[in-house]
Amino acid sequence: MLTADGAKRVLASHGIPTRAWSGLQQSRPELFVEERTRLLEEQMRAFAAGIGVPLGDRLEGVADDDSAE
């Protein structure tokens, strides 16, 4: 069984904030999505800034499958 610290490390390694995990445990999937989206957006913005790529205000895009061309 994982310790609390071990569980936090596993969640962090998968890009899941503890608050998002709590949302799933509370049957609140919308909280999971909101918190994970927030974390991933922060990480993406930090990465992009580090390589000099400006990002707009909204990061959502089209998820069409364009691989079959």
Rank of each mutant, 00 (worst) to 15 (best):
M1H: 02
L2Y: 04
T3H: 08
T3D: 08
A4G: 02
A7K: 10
V10T: 01
S13A: 13
S13C: 11
S13G: 10
H14A: 14
G15Q: 07
P17T: 06
T18A: 15
T18P: 14
T18V: 14
T18R: 12
R19H: 01
R19K: 06
W21R: 05
L24Q: 03
Q25D: 10
Q25V: 06
Q25E: 14
Q26S: 05
S27W: 02
R28T: 10
R28D: 15
P29Q: 14
P29R: 13
P29V: 15
P29A: 15
E30T: 10
F32P: 14
F32G: 14
V33G: 05
E34N: 10
E34F: 13
E34Q: 08
R36L: 04
T37I: 00
T37C: 10
R38H: 15
L39I: 11
E42L: 09
Q43H: 06
Q43S: 07
R45I: 09
R45T: 07
A46S: 07
A49D: 12
A49K: 02
G50V: 12
I51N: 12
I51H: 10
G52D: 11
V53L: 02
P54K: 08
P54S: 11
P54H: 04
P54E: 10
L55Q: 03
L55R: 00
L55E: 12
L55K: 06
D57Y: 02
R58M: 05
L59R: 07
L59I: 01
L59C: 01
E60T: 06
G61I: 04
G61A: 14
D64H: 07
D64F: 09
D66F: 08
D66K: 04
D66M: 02
S67T: 12
A68M: 02
